[in-house]
Amino acid sequence: MTTVAYQGEPASNSSTVARTLYPAGSELPFTSFEQALDAVTLGAADVAVIPVDNSAAGRVADVHHLLPESGLFIVAEYFLPIRFDLMAVSGASLDRLECVRSHVHALGQCRKVLREGGWRTLVSDDTAGAAREVAELGDPRHAALAPPAAAELFGLRVLRSAVEDDPDNTTRFVVLSRAAVPAPHTGEPTMTSLFFCVRNIPSALYKALGGFASSAVNLTKIESYQVGAGLNASRFYAEIEGHPEEPRVELALQELRFFSTEVRVLGVYPAHGHRRTERSG
């Protein structure tokens, strides 16, 4: 049985992804992303499911900070359509509400309904946790913005369903493992995540990335960050479309290594079908 660590509570979006990818697995919830990753590093869990990007709110977890030093590898990705319901205890009604609780990102993704209601907001650690808090409080003046499954789990009444601002709201999750299990090169769409640090010379980043352009390799993400307070060269987290064994990707990585002091492949994994749907749309 696969033990899956995630940040959040049962009925959260992370829990939904964990159950979808590992229906026979055992869930291990934590209050922070770092704790979920540590559980995998220390062997308490086999994999961790972490949300990294949301189509409306942008970056969710600082994977570019967490992943390179964790010793873990990305083995899969999953795109989850995000739905939020406004839920409260039995007997509550929209005209009696005074306060809405949820995770900070959920509150940011449901601004329209919050503005219409004029309710004050409280930030919770997790969307499903907000639903649990409302159920425990038992006050009809309080409601939660949470995934639909949370209403059933905590016995809450849905006052309004699908209140997210963007009907195409989607969060991308990655699955992290202790073992590097690169996807085989079969010709199927593949993603490669990597970490690199360029040489501290003029135009180093421009030259390091030049191979991707000349080899027609699509760079889907690049994020820079500094380590410590020094003036060391920036480090980068990047994601590309393609497999390292493809000749064009191999050439691009050779050029990247020439202008970098360090390059580490953090994962080679199948591209989720959402990418093909998004591109065709």
Score class of each variant (00 low, 15 high):
D125T: 15
S215D: 13
P148L: 15
R178A: 11
L159D: 06
L80K: 11
G71R: 11
E223P: 04
P244G: 02
N54T: 03
S280C: 09
P148R: 14
V198R: 07
V158M: 02
G210T: 01
T170Y: 04
L253A: 03
L66E: 02
A162P: 09
V17T: 06
A128K: 00
P147L: 11
V263Q: 02
G58S: 03
G155C: 14
E98M: 11
Y269A: 00
G210Y: 04
A213H: 13
D53G: 06
G108E: 01
I222C: 05
A18L: 05
P244K: 02
G230L: 13
D53Q: 14
S15G: 14
A162M: 14
A183G: 06
R19K: 14
H65R: 15
V17K: 04
V75M: 04
Q226F: 06
P270E: 09
S32K: 05
E245S: 13
K112H: 06
V63D: 09
F30G: 04
R235K: 10
S124N: 07
S90H: 15
H64T: 00
V227M: 07
G138I: 12
L156F: 08
T220L: 15
V52D: 08
L251A: 15
G8C: 08
R120C: 10
A238Y: 01
A180W: 03
H65K: 12
S214L: 14
V158C: 07
V227T: 09
V175R: 03
I201T: 12
A92E: 03
A135K: 00
L72R: 01
A216I: 11
T192G: 08
S224F: 06
A144M: 03
C110W: 00
M1P: 06
L122H: 09
L251V: 15
G228D: 05
T3C: 07
E34G: 06
V49I: 13
A149Q: 13
L37D: 13
V217Q: 00
G8P: 07
L97K: 07
L28N: 10
Q35G: 11
H142E: 14
D46R: 00
I201Q: 14
F73W: 14
G187Q: 09
A238F: 07
L114W: 00
P202R: 00
Y269Q: 00
A204Y: 03
A151D: 09
A208R: 04
A76S: 15
R141M: 04
V175I: 14
A76F: 07
V265D: 07
L66A: 02
P51F: 10
L66N: 00
S26L: 12
L205N: 07
E116F: 05
E34P: 00
A5Y: 03
G91Q: 02
Q109L: 12
S14L: 04
L66G: 00
R111Q: 14
S32P: 01
A88W: 09
N13M: 13
S203A: 13
R199C: 02
S32L: 06
E255N: 12
Q35K: 09
S32T: 14
T3W: 01
T220I: 15
E239A: 02
S12E: 15
G91D: 03
F30D: 08
G71I: 12
G25K: 05
A213F: 14
L80Y: 11
P29A: 01
A24F: 08
S14I: 02
I74P: 03
V123P: 03
R141D: 08
L153Q: 12
